[in-house]
């Protein structure tokens, strides 16, 4: 198989995940997009591991071992991430990352456009 097929698919999936991370507002949808990016990396690791294990007699199988580690770490990350999102939702009543502006600059350009109750919600 041509090596460009998995490599191009991986690049496209990574860019899709990048778009999702930047464009989504719900924190759980952002986590889904992060999963897409991690899976793109996994596909790259597997493809290059299969290629290298045939061409250079590399017997360490580092690509597949790293893929397994990435999958396990991604599962742990999604558990912690969901716990954080649920804690935020419990305390603030929203999982919308555009409304969580506590660490934004106090006199930033967007601050003037916020209405009063949005400000109260953000500082509550």
């Amino acid at each position: 198989m041509h090596l460009a097929y998995p490599a191009v698919l991986s690049a496209l999936l990574f860019s899709t995940g990048l778009y999702g991370v930047l464009a989504r507002r719900n924190a759980i949808l952002v986590l889904m997009s992060v999963e897409l990016m991690l899976n793109a990396v996994n596909l790259n690791l597997v493809a290059f591991d299969v290629w290298l294990s045939r061409t250079t007699r590399e017997t360490l199988h580092s690509g597949q071992a790293l893929t397994l580690f990435t999958i396990a770490i991604a599962a742990a990350e999604i558990g912690i991430g969901l716990a954080i999102v649920l804690a935020v939702h419990r305390n603030r009543g929203t999982a919308d990352i555009d409304k969580l502006r506590d660490t934004a600059e106090p006199n930033g350009p967007d601050e003037a456009t916020l209405t009063e109750d949005e400000k109260a919600e953000a500082t509550a």
């Binding site: 719900n26 924190a27 759980i28 986590l31 889904m32 999604i78 558990g79 969901l82 999102v85 649920l86 939702h89 999982a95």
Partner: peptide, 9 residues
């Protein structure tokens, strides 16, 4: 898990 998260939020 993601579906659980969507429902719980």
């Amino acid at each position: 898990l993601l579906l659980f998260g969507l429902m719980l939020t």
